Amino acid sequence: MSELFGPKLEPANGNPANKLVILLHGYGSDGKDLIGLGDFWAQGFPDVEFLAPNAPEPCSVNPFGFEWFHLDLERGDTNYEAGAEQAYPLIRDYVLQRTADAGLKLSDVVLGGFSQGAMMALYAGLRFEEPLAGILAFSGKLVDADGIGDELESTPPVCLIHGEDDDVVPVQGSLEAQEALEQFYVNVSLKVSQKTGHSIAMDGLEFATGFLTHVLKPGQSVEDA
């Protein structure tokens, strides 16, 4: 099985990482796109290493980008759950390996993503036997919402952020994910950014910062971060 590679940011304080934030990019993009979130958060979380691996396959509609699984854009009948199931082992192995390399536990790791990467963060993050510190999903959805109760191995806190006017992955994806997960007592926080499409608005980014503060710096307020 091949290994994932992509950009990373070492902790801003120059010390070995105490926490990891792993970010999965969207369809047709690459790790360079999401490592910018690490630049935004680096000073506020100086003991965190940020990683943004590239998906394993070149994107079928953008040869300069990558995909976690194929989307049938012409027919619009993609089997998202089957695609996520196929991509899952590589992501799981990557998270476990990077965590072990850093000498950390899964409870020190936040797994996040945007769009297709958010779908994979939710799919993979809920299947670790030891709970992650948290799952952060921008503009995504729970591809296995109907059967998630049979697949949950752990219940880390989940943060969902979505643009109200998203016409690529409609906001209903996050609303339905919240409803499905809360049935199984997952702690879910949701931010819907008004007048925002398929992107991350500043209020969504600030909401995510608050979530990271809560799960990576327990007991510390957002203002103190």
Rank of each mutant, 00 (worst) to 15 (best):
S60R: 15
F211S: 09
D77N: 15
A82Y: 04
K19N: 14
F211N: 09
L132V: 10
V21L: 13
R75W: 00
A42W: 06
A137P: 00
E130W: 02
G14R: 04
D39L: 09
E179D: 14
V61A: 00
S199A: 14
H25T: 07
S189G: 06
S107A: 15
N13W: 14
E67Y: 03
Q183A: 10
K141F: 14
D72G: 00
G38S: 02
E49G: 09
P131D: 07
E67A: 02
R75F: 04
F66T: 07
K191C: 14
Y94A: 08
G76P: 00
F184N: 07
V95Q: 05
G44E: 06
S189L: 03
Q178E: 15
R127N: 01
T196P: 05
I161K: 08
V168I: 15
L51A: 14
M119W: 04
V169W: 05
L90K: 13
Q116G: 06
L90G: 04
G76T: 00
G197E: 06
E57I: 13
G210I: 02
V192E: 03
K195F: 13
E81H: 05
A180N: 11
Q43E: 15
W41R: 01
A87D: 02
F138C: 13
A121V: 11
G204Q: 06
L152T: 10
P63L: 10
L122H: 11
V171S: 14
G103W: 05
G117C: 01
V158S: 11
G210N: 01
G76L: 02
E164M: 14
E85A: 15
P11Y: 10
A133W: 13
V110P: 11
A17L: 01
D30E: 12
D203F: 12
G44V: 03
R75P: 01
D33F: 12
M202W: 11
V171F: 13
F66P: 00
V168G: 00
F114L: 15
I35Q: 08
T78A: 05
L24W: 12
D93F: 00
N13E: 11
S115R: 05
K195L: 09
L175A: 12
N13V: 09
Q43K: 15
P89C: 09
T155L: 10
N62A: 03
E67R: 03
E206G: 01
E182D: 04
A180H: 09
G103L: 02
A225V: 15
P16L: 05
K195C: 03
G163F: 04
F69V: 00
E85K: 14
A82H: 05
L111H: 09
G6P: 12
Y88R: 14
T99V: 03
Y80R: 07
V48A: 12
I200R: 08
Q97W: 00
Q194R: 14
R92D: 11
W41C: 03
A42E: 08
Q116F: 04
P7A: 01
